[in-house]
Design a binder for these strands. Structure first.
Lengths: 260, 260
DNA sequence: TAATAAATGTCGTTT
DNA sequence: AAACGACGTTTATTA
């Protein structure tokens, strides 16, 4: 009786309880579809009144309560939750809690349309391209993305209160700070850049260029950029993707090694 | 043949395709469990190699690809996606795309353990307590949370580049800006508060008090707070929750009738 | 539509 | 454990 997939359609509460209870003990993935209500207490408190929902309990102890709409779960519990289940009033009580964080989620089902307990096998790799880090790499490989004669020196240079994405020297020998954004750069990006420029000005005593790099800059902050004497140079993630080469697949799990 | 729940265990690709295709057309909620691989192109690009996953397609056009672990979906598409489905090489292709944002998610299943098409009915209300807004309300109702004699004047007061959470006058008649955080206040909170104080100082020409309110302040920024001549007063979400009263239920979402 | 701030943000990494 | 920044953040609100 250790099948990879156990599934019951419109089970009784008792039958469903068996599946859920054993599934949680066996660290399986569980899906429950039925009528339920939910209470959450922790960083905030919430109450969800009865309705038909999809609940997923994962083997790492994460819980998701999904309504028929919306990307985000209406209630959830992060990985590492502990569980307590019971039957009362012909309903299934599922409590997922974290003692240290003092957070608890209680889901009560009084009608179940489908319950499944699964041992899923998923070893597939996940690759993500054209992340902000990829953009850094692309600029290091092809500095002319910034401007002719730009000479990048170091990536991820630590300074007080943060990291300078790229630090380099321009074609006139001026120290240049580059702040990279993968999407439209807003006020925070400009302020971040200004902060690094300030720090470097102070520590070197010389003039320092600050360049914001990204696909676009939000209209509202162009004035701020000018006021602070900073520059914007448009570079899209796509440009970087192409420079890195279509064949270059960067495994997410290998980022750290790659970086060093 | 318009049952609220349609479900097939280990269907053929053709059978599963029928369920998925019709389900998407009928704006139903769809769950697919099986072996799949995924490609995403949009703000970034990603590739997920084959494995067994749970895919949820919701009636609002959101898509979630869940691995057996982790709270977050490994791939997804926000609500409002358009769909294209087809069979090729005895596999089901599901493309969820957004033309305007130029984002596309392609999921390919070659083996399906379970497919379900559901018309879920969920009209239950959702209530959330002790949000940051609740904290604002509590301070307006019980200003002594800040200090004796504090007199709050306006909430959400717009100023250039943002909103002052609460603007009031202290027991010595000084204009006072209050910035509320529901969790440990970090550097951003202090800088935000300072920005608003600065703006008000400039526009009034008078001295302005700035008070950061929240459950806690991060250790590192206490010095910054002092330097900027700002104050911190501890108030927890729980305090506010109690002032607002257990009976006070705040409606977050009212589901429209198109749910039915 | 763009911009801005909140979120039970989550998820890493570094101190 | 706390702090800090990035995220395909998402979501809501407002100009």
């Amino acid at each position: 009786m250790n099948k990879r997939f156990r599934l019951l359609e419109t089970p009784t509460i008792k039958q469903a309880y068996q599946i859920v209870h054993k599934g949680i003990l066996g660290h399986r993935n569980i899906i429950i579809i039925g009528n339920c209500w939910v209470e959450y207490n922790g960083r905030a408190s919430s109450k969800l009144e009865p309705g038909e929902r999809i609940v997923i309990i994962k083997r790492d102890g994460s819980v998701l309560v999904h309504r028929p709409r919306d990307y985000a779960p209406i209630n959830w519990q992060p990985p590492g939750s502990l569980f307590k289940t019971m039957i009362r009033n012909n309903s299934i009580y599922i409590r997922a809690y974290k003692t240290k964080e003092n957070e608890s989620l209680e889901i009560i089902f009084d009608k179940i349309y489908l319950v499944a307990s699964l041992r899923l096998i998923d070893t597939g790799e996940f690759y993500l391209y054209a992340s902000e880090k990829d953009m850094h790499d692309a600029i290091m490989i092809e500095p002319s993305l910034i401007e002719e004669g730009f000479n990048p020196l170091v990536m991820e240079r630590p300074v007080e209160s943060g990291f300078i994405d790229i630090l380099g020297v321009d074609n006139k020998g001026r120290l240049t700070v580059i702040e990279v954004k993968r999407k439209i750069a807003g006020k925070e990006a400009v302020l971040q850049l200004e902060k690094y420029v300030k720090v470097l000005k102070k520590s070197t005593g010389k003039k320092v260029r600050g360049i914001l790099v990204g696909p676009e800059i939000s209209k509202g902050v162009q004035a701020l950029l000018a006021t602070l004497n900073l520059e914007f140079i448009p570079v899209s993630p796509k440009d970087c993707y192409e420079i890195l080469g279509i064949g270059r697949n960067k495994k997410i799990t290998e980022f750290s090694l790659d970086e060093i």
